[in-house]
Amino acid sequence: MSTYINNFLKYRPLLNELTVRDIKTRYRRSVMGVLWSLLNPLCTMIVLSIVFSNLFKSDIENFPLYIMAGQVVFNFYSEATSNSMNAIIGNSSLIKKAYIPKYLFVLSRIMSSLVNLMASFAAFIGIMLVLRAEMHYTIVLAFIPIAFTTVFSAGVGLILAAYAVKFRDLIHIYGVFITALLYLTPIIYPMSMLPDTIRKVVLLNPLTNMVNMFRDVAINGLLPGWQSILIATAECAVVMIIGLYAFYKKQDSFILNI
């Protein structure tokens, strides 16, 4: 175990460099540069909120904010996992030439998505101010659902990265899956709208719990319940263990398939 930790410490500067690279190359040659990571979520959030708050009339106070809060979490999950999936394939030239702990590539993608999440969270707070929504002190606890989503995404990302190397179909399948998942998570509709059977399915989705937790602390001024914290911890632990195991088993064969 200690050799793993030492190894990680040795390569920590690389994790920083890789994360910075991911962010830099994404916006290279665009006039507004990194500002896009703020503007992009801001614009999409506004568009979706206008469309869906008119489509679904609901009893939820400040429905546009409800939609945006959901998007902050969901977009992070979607971006982090999709980017992680390509982490090994995208860095194939490096993996072929130098020894680097391979999980670093996945981790760097998670980290750069986390930076983007910070930007979209800032955009979200900006919108709250513009809408003159009530600010609750519980918003400082937003790091709890964000931490859960991060660990959960990392676990899923490791699984995807490990298998996408051999089965490139996964990349295409996952794109469809993410779209389906968007509708199975209460982002653009209120939970109260759902019929009972579908409601059960939506509640089984691990992201539902994390999205709701984020909404509770960010806009409803509620503390996260113990129950949902326990469930989220268990889900994160299970996904992370599976992810690490799958990645560990597969990592030596990456070089043969990239």
């Binding site: 500067p13 690389l14 920083n16 890789l18 830099k24 030239s93 490096l94 030439k97 130098a98």
Partner: peptide, 18 residues
Amino acid sequence: AGFDFDLTAKENVFLNGA
């Protein structure tokens, strides 16, 4: 192999060093 072609030489020095 260790270079990211979109980054500048300076940035690549730090990336490769890492």
